[in-house]
């Protein structure tokens, strides 16, 4: 399985956690169809907004990062993202530009203001978490094609019916790569909103829990979670991501994802 750069994660998280209201969809859905439905919104072309990330250790001490994000899928199917850091001040102005080509190698560039010039990065990176947070690539950016999805049951929580879908890595090697054995996702029956995700190890023990919250309707019947909280059970740490001022289909173009924009001072 290919691992994208960590900073692509936060863009993908938004793109992948969109959900559209269940409008006359057949009731007998498979696990795969349910997962696919949570990720599909054909009218989404681009996205812009800002994000605050709080990384809280077990003693309650928090570190805060603020960044701006823009993302685009152009007509050729090329996905582009540009992230600029606003806080903390030591990383202010740092930027990541990523261009995912469907038919060719991906391009990734880092800009550090102190260096004064962009720097090409390798298109793959081995694991690790995102900026010291509890999020990993595997939690959020993994492609659903890499998993077998099974609908386990339908559970009712607070008078809302949820599909419980189990996702298992297709191969043993992939299971070793991702560091978990399976994950369970609770998806609402009516709006296809993800409520939470549990990541489990080979013994069935929960490693991490991700809660989705504060859904915002960004287009008619299309919702996005603007608050995500990931807790790592063993370390007792947790990370809260809050998206702000999210706008979609704002008319971004390829020119907004260029070396020029990456290196422009903040």
């Amino acid at each position: 399985m290919k691992k994208k750069y960590n900073y692509v994660v936060i863009i993908l998280m938004l793109f992948m956690s969109f959900c559209v209201v269940n409008q006359g969809i057949a009731q007998e859905l498979t696990g795969k169809e349910i997962i696919e439905h949570t990720e599909s919104i054909e009218t989404l072309k681009d996205l812009r907004g800002s994000m605050e990330m709080q990384i809280i250790n077990k003693s309650g001490k928090a570190r805060v990062r603020e960044l701006t994000i823009i993302g685009l899928e152009n007509e050729e199917g090329i996905e582009k993202s540009l992230i600029r850091f606003l806080k903390p001040s030591k990383v202010k102005g740092t930027g990541f530009l990523t261009i995912s080509n469907p038919d060719g190698p991906d391009e990734s560039y880092l800009y550090l203001p102190a260096l004064g010039k962009p720097r090409r990065l390798s298109s793959e990176e081995r694991g690790g978490n995102f900026m010291g947070s509890d999020f990993t690539n595997e939690d959020m950016s993994s492609c659903h094609e890499d998993y077998e999805h099974n609908l386990l049951n339908i559970e009712e929580i607070d008078d809302v019916a949820y599909y419980v879908v189990e996702s298992v890595p297709k191969t043993e090697k992939m299971q070793q790569d991702v560091g978990f054995a399976r994950k369970l996702t609770w998806i609402s029956h009516d709006k296809f909103q993800v409520l939470k995700m549990e990541v489990l190890d080979i013994n069935g023990k929960i490693i991490r829990i991700l809660n989705y919250d504060e859904y915002q309707e960004i287009e008619k019947d299309a919702w996005i979670p603007t608050r995500l909280e990931m807790a790592t059970i063993e370390s007792g740490s947790r990370t809260i991501l809050e998206y702000k001022n999210i706008e979609v289909n704002t008319g971004l173009t390829d020119d907004d994802f260029s070396i020029r924009q990456l290196t422009r001072p903040l």
Binding site: P105, E107, S108, R120, S122
Partner: peptide, 11 residues
């Protein structure tokens, strides 16, 4: 020049 070969970058 700089070119990436998936896992590494040559400059």
């Amino acid at each position: 020049f700089s070119k990436d070969f998936v896992d590494y970058v040559v400059r």
